[in-house]
């Protein structure tokens, strides 16, 4: 059970934060189809950053002393680098869709094609293979929390709570959850959030009230890019052993599905992300999940292919779309370039 909770969180949190990235862009009126591409780019820059700092030996001392606080600081820095790169990369999308009023779907598709190509080109040149790993060690030994850090012995148990939420987890996960809450509050409880959302619903009205629609759309897309870049790195850190290979296995698109399933609302998105994360987790390790601890792997006994679990999120999203399309709360002005002359 503790294993299930831990694993589900690992899959759910990148989905959650990237889906929120999608919300920020769409609420400001820009369809961000490039989430997948931005994730790939952010993951790459984050891993490159980790690599470079490791080569420079800055945190070698902290690693030797098992100074977990310093190592977590290192992880946060890498997340910041990934977020910054994601924000920069997303400027390509906002420039095309805000200033040049280009087709946002095509622009997003271009970024989705661009990111893996650029990333693989550089990875091949840096590493001479198709995957860029950490310069030394592995992600768990550097960035994972362990019982031993808190004075527990190898055989001691930290209790249910400790085992599920502290032992063998990545604090990056909790940073993302915190960020998710803070940003959701900003989106709904602040003046900035209200203005941003108004640009996605009725930009003409927003403009007539003195809100700069272009600026708001830039802000929405840039926040979106930063979150997606960070989500990409967190995904690489927690599920791919802090390596980059120009691929996030469709997580960006799955996040898009989470966003739609969650009806563009943060609380629903958190729920949807947990559900989809659970499916991902079951698909990845259903043969070894022992839910109630009786030593029988129930899901394995059921004999359902893991591909069904992988497919379910997409099928569910399509079905949900079909049933709720009439009362969908998609931002009304998303995807429509704003033109001042149209008022």
């Amino acid at each position: 059970m503790t294993f299930l909770i831990r694993q589900t969180l690992i899959y759910a949190v990148p989905l959650m934060i990237v889906a929120l990235a999608g919300v920020f862009a769409e609420r400001s009126g820009i369809i961000n189809l490039a989430l997948e591409g931005i994730m790939i780019f952010g993951a790459f820059i984050g891993v490159v950053f980790v690599n470079m700092i490791q080569e420079a030996g800055v945190f070698d001392g902290a690693k030797a002393d098992s100074n977990w606080a310093a190592l977590q600081g290192f992880a946060m820095l890498a997340m910041l680098a990934a977020a910054a790169s994601g924000a920069l990369f997303s400027l390509l999308l906002s420039f095309a869709s805000v200033n040049l009023r280009a087709d946002q779907t095509i622009g997003g598709t271009a970024l989705n094609l661009m990111a893996p190509a650029l990333v693989l080109f550089f990875i091949r040149i840096i590493a001479n293979q198709n995957v860029l790993n950490m310069a030394g060690g592995d992600a768990p030994s550097w960035f994972m929390l362990r019982k031993s850090y808190f004075g527990y012995g190898r055989t001691d148990s930290m209790g249910f709570f400790g085992e599920a939420f502290i032992n063998q987890t990545y604090p990056a996960t909790y940073v993302c959850i915190l960020l998710f809450i803070v940003l959701s509050v900003i989106l709904y409880q602040t003046r900035f959030g209200l203005r941003l959302r108004s640009c996605g619903e009725n930009p003409q009205a927003a403009d007539s009230l003195g809100i700069n629609v272009y600026k708001m759309r830039y802000a929405g897309t840039t926040i979106s890019g930063a979150l997606a870049g960070m989500g990409g790195f967190v995904y690489a850190l927690t599920t791919a052993n802090c390596s980059a290979n120009g691929d996030v296995a469709g997580f960006g698109f799955l996040a898009l599905a989470v966003m739609i399933f969650g009806n563009w609302k943060p609380l629903n998105i958190a729920g949807a992300a947990l559900l989809f994360g659970l499916f991902k987790c079951i698909a990845a390790s259903y043969t070894s999940i022992d839910i109630n601890g009786d030593g029988i792997f129930m899901l394995k006994e059921l004999g359902i292919s893991s591909h069904l679990y992988r497919m379910l999120p997409y099928v569910i999203t399509l079905v949900v779309l079909a049933f709720t399309s009439k009362k969908s709360h998609a931002p009304k002005a998303e995807g429509i370039p704003y033109d001042k002359g149209q008022r």
Binding site: L92, A96, L100, R101, A102, D103, I106, G107, T109, A110, L111, L113, M114, P116, A117, L118, L120, F121, R124, I125
Partner: peptide, 20 residues
């Protein structure tokens, strides 16, 4: 010493440009 992904970059750039 370069690799084939550069052409994918070119293709992506072309898509980006055709967006506008």
């Amino acid at each position: 010493g370069y690799n084939e992904y550069i052409t994918d970059v070119i293709i992506a750039a072309i898509v980006y440009l055709s967006a506008f």
